[in-house]
Design a protein around this nucleic acid. Structure first.
Lengths: 295, 295, 295
DNA sequence: ATAGGTTTTGTCAAGCTTTTGTACAT
DNA sequence: ATGTACAAAAGCTTGACAAAACCTAT
């Protein structure tokens, strides 16, 4: 569970599938493991040792002889493996999925803490959080994840993203107004996009899910943002509002993002489509703003 | 229920369920009560004293030993008064409304920071945040607030509440599972209620808005919570699901809260209605859990 | 079920599922629990103790041997913070001091994680981190803290602040160049100040401690920042460089901040003094920039 | 793989003390 | 009403024990 727990030989055997006698033999013959000892002489193994045994068995399963397998394991033993493995985005994403699927809130927070200290917000969002959410959606569609798991995960992640968002309307940069199209409930992608914009110096005002367009128009008038981004996961939400969108877009720059932001649908509504990739979208908008109002 | 009613020891005993001898012992040993005396020496107790005895008995029912229970009662006696003395809830609520109405995110955060530093979570929620949200809903119904303002405020507050919620499934007491009924999108009341439960020692798992009942049933089976609370702002959401709710409630305690939790609707669905006031609801549930799980 | 109730061993046993004998054995053998005692010698446990027992049992259920499980529990002991829902800045500061003084790096990280999710960066820095550093300096001056503790704490905090600073030179806002005066080694205050500026939309370039003024002048020429802030904790570092500072300030706005930034010293060097309070300083600079370059 | 010895760990018992609700005499 | 007494319940310490898990060596 933890990174620094110690296992006795019985537990190592249970977790690795190798008998205690065999583990002792591998230690004596090949120096595969170097457990520390308790005051009474009991062997105590680290999780790195467990990993070594796993690799050893994998080699054996491939037909490598024991002596050579052990040598290979020790050779490829680049020190604190598990600690480094934690920095691999795929591993973190996997760990995030595991904890959230199990409704294990404290450890999910720990994983996110680790992620946020190890990575930039850009990396955390594009390499871990957004791919995870995307994957979760797929699993839900396939019936491999329950709505409960999906809501639980979304709530926890929303909390962390809103934590990062704190104060994002403050400061000197241009203001971007964000909102989901009417009937669109998926706000996490837009929230993430807002964070990517924020790290690029924008000020953000986020109206969240399901925003009626007349109200949006009023808010544009009140806040006078530099530009507005509306989001949708399906082009279907655009068509019913083409006319209204076009009216607003005539007096104010409107961008549309999310999986539903197809070129054709955007063009029909007289607004500008953003790339599907949120990082590319953030860069594109920032680039554009920099051009219009250079330094 | 006057503020200045005085009880003699027999009446206090009858109302509190503790024998006169015991009440005197608690006074002598722990200083739990400080009754004034009649000219003839008869003890005269206030209603605050009755409340102390009730709290004492609740602690005892939870398994706390008498000396420690009395200490806890006395400690929580002086606590909130001193802590919150400097704080005017109405002023803070007004300030919160002003900043949020103006989409002034940084200063809204500052107000909330101030509130959280100056008040307990209980006070912050029941005196400021929940009244503000309620008032915002009223203003929206009257057309005095736009959906944009409402979404903006809800998102910001949700972020702060989720920040406070961090780690709330960890460690101690019994586990409470929370969810909104199907089609119910208002999750902030439930979230606040979860925080109130948390400060009373519960562990929380929150499934958020719009949770299908079959999935809820599965999650109950998986997590084995001590009880489940579903929320709705209107009784209309209960009727279509009466049968399913009843089925679940037969094998697991289900409570229903929120503005829509009328007695009649709850009874029809075979579940227990909670008081409309979230603080009272949290107290009621905690009370009940303490009663059911004595020695 | 308050956060400060005390349990006798029987109740702890009932709530945790471990027998009283076993609890005493764990205390004696591994020091897992440190209950206070009643005047008569009865063990009184806190809810944090209950949490420890729960974690102990969870480890045991995973197959970890008792001695190692206890060691793991004690190692990951983040104090009473996680058990209570206490987000009082003073409590967090105290917990930060406790963990850092004990060179308890993992738990210090946990405390900081908690702080960053519960509070805004502004609050975290001004209410917790900076007061803690100031207090640490005082204690060191009085001989109550060792240089080792001071270095350890500074290094850990610097790492976290740098983590928050990631990407802070990116984006659209005006660029602020930060540097400590020659011989000035205290860079954490400046780093914090940079973060406060960042949340107000600035881009930041930080040159860190002990920066020779000719190099600073060159960097100003290269980066063309919007303004430059130099920091010092004592006015003594200003006097030797008055002339050079004045020369630079003739062609570029220079501000001076930190405890050493007295009005008189600043005036003598022809630069602008900032308020001693970093939050006020950040606001002042941002205000000024907004005036000069509106919208 | 087995044998024989050691360490670890949960449990129990004996004898004594503290805590606490109730009872009784003044 | 007060104060003392009392007995049951719950705790404390010391010491010991046995099953399970481990060790080494053959």
């Amino acid at each position: 569970v933890q990174g620094d727990t110690l296992l006795r030989i019985g537990e190592l055997s249970r977790r690795s599938g190798a008998s205690p006698e065999l583990l002792r033999a591998w230690e004596r013959r090949y120096g595969l493991l170097r457990p520390i000892r308790s005051p009474g002489g009991i062997r105590l193994y680290s999780l790195a040792d467990l990993d070594r045994v796993h690799r050893m068995r994998r080699h054996l399963a491939c037909g490598i002889a024991a002596a050579q397998a052990a040598a290979a394991v020790l050779r490829s033993d680049a020190g604190p493996l598990l600690a480094d493995a934690a920095l691999d985005p795929a591993a973190i994403r996997h760990e995030l999925a595991r904890t959230l699927d199990a409704f294990d809130e404290p450890n999910a927070h720990t994983v996110i803490d680790l992620l946020l200290t190890a990575a930039t917000i850009d990396t955390a969002l594009t390499q871990v959080v957004l791919p995870y959410l995307h994957d979760l959606g797929d699993r839900w569609a396939r019936g491999d994840a329950s709505i409960a798991q999906e809501h639980f995960a979304a709530t926890l992640i929303r909390g962390r993203l809103l934590g990062l968002a704190r104060g994002w309307s403050r400061g000197l940069g241009p203001l971007a107004l964000l909102a989901c199209l009417p009937d669109e409930q998926h706000d996490l992608g837009l929230l993430s996009f807002g964070l990517l914009l924020r790290t690029r110096g924008w000020r953000i005002a986020d109206l969240g899910a399901d925003m009626p367009l007349p109200t949006l128009a009023n808010t544009i008038h009140t806040l006078q943002p530099h530009l507005t981004v509306v989001a949708t996961v399906t082009p279907k939400r655009i068509t019913p509002h083409q006319a209204k969108l076009r009216t607003i877009a005539e007096r104010h720059p409107i961008f549309i993002g999310g999986a539903g932001a197809t070129q054709s649908a955007a063009q029909a509504a007289g607004v500008t489509a953003l790339p599907a990739d949120p990082l590319a979208a953030a860069e594109a908008i920032t680039q554009r703003a920099g051009d219009h109002q250079p330094d």
